[in-house]
Nucleic acid binder design. Structure first.
Lengths: 225, 225
DNA sequence: CGAGCGTTTGAACAGCGTCAAAACAAGTGG
DNA sequence: CCACTTGTTTTGACGCTGTTCAAACGCTCG
């Protein structure tokens, strides 16, 4: 196992173990018993059409939610950062897969626990809120996929990631170019070319492929339209 | 006013009037008081960032839900057929606009009525279900926008519309080529060319621009991937 | 230091968009 | 009933953006 991965794993509560039962904060108003699991980079967390027995929350690392075409093309619909929920379904089965972008640890809450708690109107409202927020994000992202140029897509991606970062002008991208491309509906080559173009424009600086400094955030913002 | 529109309007309960108070079936489990309004073709029903004071249900005609970029590009996220709900928000304001594709009549239920009813766990669950179904559809559509060719998009569109039609092999498209293009993330020219190509391939027959006969539904199905 | 993967860069190609004009449909007025 | 108007759809020619294929580069990790 690579050194970096070992270090990352030390920060997770229960590396690669189905243990650590206890109470997991699903959100401000949901506090249900669950357990923590660790996943290796690129490991599948759940697959399309799989029975949706759990609701998931990222503890550390990053998760991608995605769908496939029959011939293997991917569309990533969301990157899930620590603290956020994914895999919450209303119907019986998952409609997307989820995979670990980085080594990560994830809290699992049994679906039937959630169902039982949904008798409480507050809990039910929270389930609705989480789904409605996902819906909002997807609508925004559809506009990007259907109507924006490559430059606009990459700019929007960088601005969006910066919004999540601690330092809003220096970000560490946890995902590969392929992940970014499959999120933006582009190819890795186009993503790469667009980023180097931004660097030539003086909008960003790249230290390696994953450390990005936003030198002109306002420029990027307007480039994202 | 054009003759055809007059005729269409006769079938709506309350043409262009804010009257017709009474009980409106929002869904199987929601039965709340509302009123019916008529909208002309291309009339705005609500706009982005407008306060979400109502939840809407199509009675007759068809509605499009869409977003705009700053410079006027459109992305239609859904066509709403009779019987279905739109404009249901969790937050305080709408995140998309809605417009009438055809002359149509729409039931409005006051948001605060819904909020009050959401104390009932069954109602709350219904709100969640409606939102979750929208989310499912949008995820599917994102795969189309991000990863499918023009031919695949148009084929998927025709198959999808056929699925809603009474006669599954003969459909009347209520929307213009521009609407189809803005739904599929293409231009009107590409939509038109793709359809005539399908006609040459013997997959469909076009009687005028809006009446489509699916001659080889299976072929289209596989063309949609 | 060397191996292997991910990223960048380059060149050629193609799918779709753009621009323009013709064809078509439907309404309007003489 | 027919010419005229207006808006939509189709068709054509061309060009650009982004993809494909291929090779070089450079981390990261053993």
């Amino acid at each position: 196992m690579p050194l970096q991965q070992s270090i990352d794993r030390l920060s997770t509560p229960a590396p690669a173990a189905r243990s650590e039962c206890g109470s997991v904060q699903l959100s401000e108003t949901l506090n249900l018993p669950g357990f923590v699991m660790a996943f290796d980079r690129n490991e599948e967390i759940f697959g399309e059409e799989e029975s949706a027995d759990f609701v998931y929350k990222v503890i550390s690392g990053m998760v991608r939610v995605l769908r496939f075409t029959g011939d293997g093309r991917r569309q990533i619909s969301a990157f899930v950062p620590p603290g956020e929920i994914f895999g919450l379904e209303h119907g019986p089965s998952h409609k997307s897969s989820a995979e670990a972008v980085t080594d990560c640890s994830v809290a699992l809450i049994r679906r039937n626990q959630v169902e039982r708690a949904a008798g409480d109107a507050n809990v039910a409202r929270t389930l609705w809120r989480v789904t409605a927020q996902d819906l909002m994000r997807l609508q925004e992202h559809m506009l990007l996929l259907g109507r924006k140029s490559a430059a606009e897509r990459v700019a929007a991606f960088l601005v969006g990631m910066a919004g999540r970062s601690n330092d809003p002008d220096a970000l560490e991208l946890p995902m590969s170019r392929l992940d970014i491309a499959d999120y933006l509906g582009l190819t890795i080559e186009t993503v790469s070319r667009t980023m180097t173009q931004f660097e030539r424009d003086g909008a960003i600086a790249l230290h390696g492929s994953r450390r990005v400094i936003l030198k002109r955030p306002g420029w990027l913002q307007s480039a994202a339209h």
